[in-house]
Amino acid sequence: MKRYLLERTGQLVITVFAVMTLTFFLIRLLPGGPADAIRADLIQNNPEMSTDQINRRVEAQLNIMPDDPLHVQYVSYVSDLLRGDMGQSISQGAPVTEIIANAAPWTIFFIGTAVMIAFVIGISAGAIMAYREGTRFDNNSTVTAILMNSVPDYIYGLIFLWLLSYQLGVFPTGGRYSSSTEPTVNPLAPVETLTFFGDVLYHAALPITAIVFVAWGGWALGMRGNSIQVLGEDYLRVARLRGLPQRRIALRYVGRNAILPMYTSMLITIGFLLGGSIIIEQVFSYPGMGYYMIEALTRRDYPLMMGVFLIITITVAIGVYVADLTYGLIDPRASAGDSQ
């Protein structure tokens, strides 16, 4: 077990490092660069400036040296990173670490909530559909799940935004929380804290619903298929003959064995959704990771781009890592000892 843990951790580090290296060079291959972006900006705003002046202004604004040879940039990037410094964002004028630390909790909050809700709804719906396999309820739910699963989340987002925010005015059109609410997380001021949390949920409600609308169907269909398979297993028949209570059969026999194959994909999904929320965050002007990634891309902001990519990679890698290490705990057949 110890050896497996070590090996697995080593793999994690290597994966993150490899992706970091790969994205570093891929981003440098994009046409244009931060210098071009700033130059274009300066020329547009100061038509009277000479080329020399502009070049000097550009160099002054850029504290990284985009014109250094690639390997020099790479070495300095990696050594900075190992010290926890992801560099200075060119477009936002703040350290990348700070921007990500500010944005990530919001993305994690609304994506995490959405995934959890979708998972719970999907698993329950899938299990009920399997128990009633072939009934009208099952057929209708299957069709609904497939339809809802086939529409991208931003389409739901746009519909919600148009109908509920602009036409009916029931929900806010964007942002993390109302400008009138003071962010308070303080056990000594419970009323203010609760108001703040309520306001945050109110703002996140539409993006969360949009994601849930898409994601639940996938889980439901997966769970339905797995449950139907488990319901046909010999051990289920024996369990029924042994007179076990229905509840125990549903949870300990069907539920557990049907969810098992979906556990890993759920953890990986959380990782992917962190980066996959770009369009939803744009639609709802929700300043999370995806929002800053778009900013960085349009402004050729290498350090911020690298930072966001890196965080997404690390989350996915950690998701898989956690899934691998804990899978043995929930499925005795896959305990680490056997795979050696």
Binding site: E233, V238, A239, R242, R256, P332
Partner: peptide
Amino acid sequence: RWEQISMVFQGALSSFNPT
């Protein structure tokens, strides 16, 4: 069932919950 008449049936090898 099981208190008066119990049964061992075909497919005994998969008669236990694997988890």
